[in-house]
Design a protein around this nucleic acid. Structure first.
Lengths: 110, 110
DNA sequence: CCGACTCGTGAACGGGTCGTGAACGGCCGG
DNA sequence: CCGGCCGTTCACGACCCGTTCACGAGTCGG
C-alpha cells in the first residue's frame, strides 16, 4: 500500500491524484483544489506514511523557508482535510504528530 | 462514462458531437456554433474529465501561443456555456479550476 | 492548579482571477 | 451600401485565493 514517489497517477485509499493535469479524485468525485492545496497534498503524498515537518512542507509547497509564527501549513492542512473528508467521510487522510509535523496515510475511521 | 478521444461521434450527458460535419446536438436540439466555438469545444471534449490550461486550449483552438492578458478563452468558454446550458439547463458541462484551467464533464446540477 | 505551548478552526482582508455584458471593427452576402 | 455574424477587446463586478489574526481546546511540565 505504498506509492512510488513519482508515479503519474497515484491511487490509494479511495484517493486518486493525477499529477499532469492537477486533478484530485476522492471516492469517484472531483475534489476542487487550489494551487497551494495541491502542492501541499503532493508534498504529503510523496512522503506517504512518513512524518513531514512544517519546515519541509513549506519548503516543498511554498518555496523558501518557513518564518517563525507562520501558520500557513496548519491552515492548508485544515483545508485539505475538510475537502478530502467531505468526499470520503469515513477516511482520515492527514494525521497530526504534535511537535513533529504531519503524516499522510488514508486510514478507515472506527 | 469516458469517451474515446477520437470517436467520430461522441455522445454523453445529453450531448452529441459529430466531428466530420461539425454538428453539435444537446438535448435533441441543434446547437449553432461558430468555428472558434466548435474548435474550443472539441479541444475540451477530447480531454474529457481532465483539466486543460488556457495556454493549451488556445494552442488547440486558435493556434499559436496565448499572450499575457488575452481573455479570449474565457470569453469563448462563456459563449459555449451559454449555448449548452440553454439547451440543457440542468447540466453543467464546463467547470472552472481557478489557477489551472477548464475541465469538460457533464454533471447534473444539484 | 497554573502557565506555556501546540494545534484546530473560523473570520477578515487585500489582491488577483474569472464571469459577463457591451462596444468595436472586419468580413461576407444580399 | 447595408445588415448580420464573428472574433477581439475592454470595463466592471463578483468571486476565489492566500495570508494573517484571534480565540479556544488540548497537552505537558512544574
Amino acid at each position: 500500500m505504498e506509492a512510488a514517489p513519482h508515479d503519474e497517477t497515484i491511487r490509494a485509499g479511495g484517493l486518486e491524484l493525477r499529477r499532469s493535469d492537477g486533478l484530485v479524485l476522492a471516492g469517484g468525485q472531483v475534489v476542487q483544489t487550489s494551487v497551494r492545496e495541491l502542492r501541499l497534498l503532493v508534498a504529503l503524498v510523496d512522503r506517504w506514511g512518513r512524518i513531514v515537518s512544517r519546515e519541509e512542507l513549506y519548503r516543498l509547497a511554498w518555496g523558501g523557508t518557513l518564518r517563525a509564527g507562520d501558520r500557513s501549513v496548519d491552515v492548508y492542512v485544515h483545508k485539505l482535510r475538510a475537502k478530502l473528508e467531505q468526499a470520503l467521510p469515513d477516511t482520515a487522510f492527514i494525521h497530526t504528530h504534535p511537535g513533529f509535523g504531519y503524516r499522510f496515510d488514508p486510514l478507515h475511521k472506527l
